[in-house]
Design a protein around this nucleic acid. Structure first.
Lengths: 188, 188
DNA sequence: CACGAGTGTGAGTGGTCAACCACACATAAA
DNA sequence: TTTATGTGTGGTTGACCACTCACACTCGTG
């Protein structure tokens, strides 16, 4: 049974990935300022002190989380685009919307985007991450869909409307105004 | 010279209004969790302790600020609708958009909306205020413009896109993707 | 002037936060 | 087994937070 005993410790790189994944849930509720590093640590199952071994500061951790989310969103859109390849811009954009809706069905991804936007106002590092994230997203959607400016713009405007619906849990309100805002928007 | 000397002290009601007005600027930068009551007090020119005489808690203060902003937005749309009365839905909605663009030219109103959305996720009182605010806004826009569901929805989606542009200061970035997102969106 | 009611503050309070550090334990290679 | 390196934590620190309270001042009225 040579090396039967398994490693008990993770490598730092594995831990960083764990933290990135679990921190999404932690930051999703209360955003950058409202979430403590202790909460992030608890979500990852490590001590608060160790968070500071893996990331130099709370800000750099949050930035890494935001970047991680943008990568996931992009990957989701790429998947959809690959499946709908060769179709018209409308069809590709619709497939992207569907894929996006499925990706963020647990809402956390979307809430991170919302909180990243909010933090971007005062935190330059976050602002830069958000800019880069949307820059790549917009260019990708434009290229992959082949749609016109207006269509691409509307695609993102609809995404932003989703942020609003999720943030105030519009699903839980049964009224004409929520039906107006959420008309035609898929969600799971 | 009977009552020549003017009052030196404000009434509590006047102070409350001052605080509501100035707190917009304070909360606009870092949102609900990121802004301290001391900052709000300094913006209003009063002591931090007195903030707690005027409002029972930080949360109720923030909620009042959010409601105040929604009232201002609604008033702005009403003004625009009155001027464009009798025109087609498109024209009315465009006039509303113009008026809205002028109202939030200093960005603070819009940033409060963004931060209110973010705080709504975890703070039930804020969520209720945001729901009420948008409920009235949507119903008003629908009624005053006479537009179809889709038009009203697009109106708000465009507004949400403005939040994104303002939060990451897209104006400061000269690139194709910012031009795509901000195409046709007036701002002053 | 006197006096009650309203306006306003300085100086706290207990609690929490991001960040740090000394130290313990696990691992891999010599 | 020894040693160097990497993984991980308990305990702390100084700053700062929302919120409170005793007290001072101003005002309108009789």
């Amino acid at each position: 049974m040579q090396t039967e005993r398994r490693r008990q410790l993770s490598t730092a790189e594995e831990r960083r990935e764990t933290v990135l994944r679990t921190a999404i849930g932690a930051f999703a509720a209360r955003g950058y300022f409202g979430t403590t590093t202790t909460e992030v640590a608890r979500a990852a199952g490590i001590s608060q002190a160790y968070v500071y071994r893996l990331f130099p500061s709370k800000e750099s951790l949050f930035v890494a989380v935001v970047e991680h989310c943008f990568v996931q969103v992009r990957a989701s859109l790429e998947l959809a685009a690959a499946e709908a390849k060769g179709s018209s811009a409308e069809v590709v954009l619709h497939a992207m919307g569907e894929s996006y809706a499925r990706l963020i069905s647990d809402n956390d991804l979307m809430l991170i985007q919302l909180h990243a936007q909010a933090a971007a106002v005062s935190e330059p590092a976050v602002r830069e991450a958000v800019r880069q994230g949307y820059a790549r997203l917009v260019e990708y959607v434009r290229g992959a869909s082949g749609g016109e400016e207006r269509q691409v713009q509307e695609f993102f405007a609809t995404g932003m409307l989703c942020h609003l619906l999720v943030s105030m849990d519009a699903d839980a309100v049964d009224a004409p105004w929520t039906r107006t805002l959420s008309a035609g928007i898929t969600h799971y």
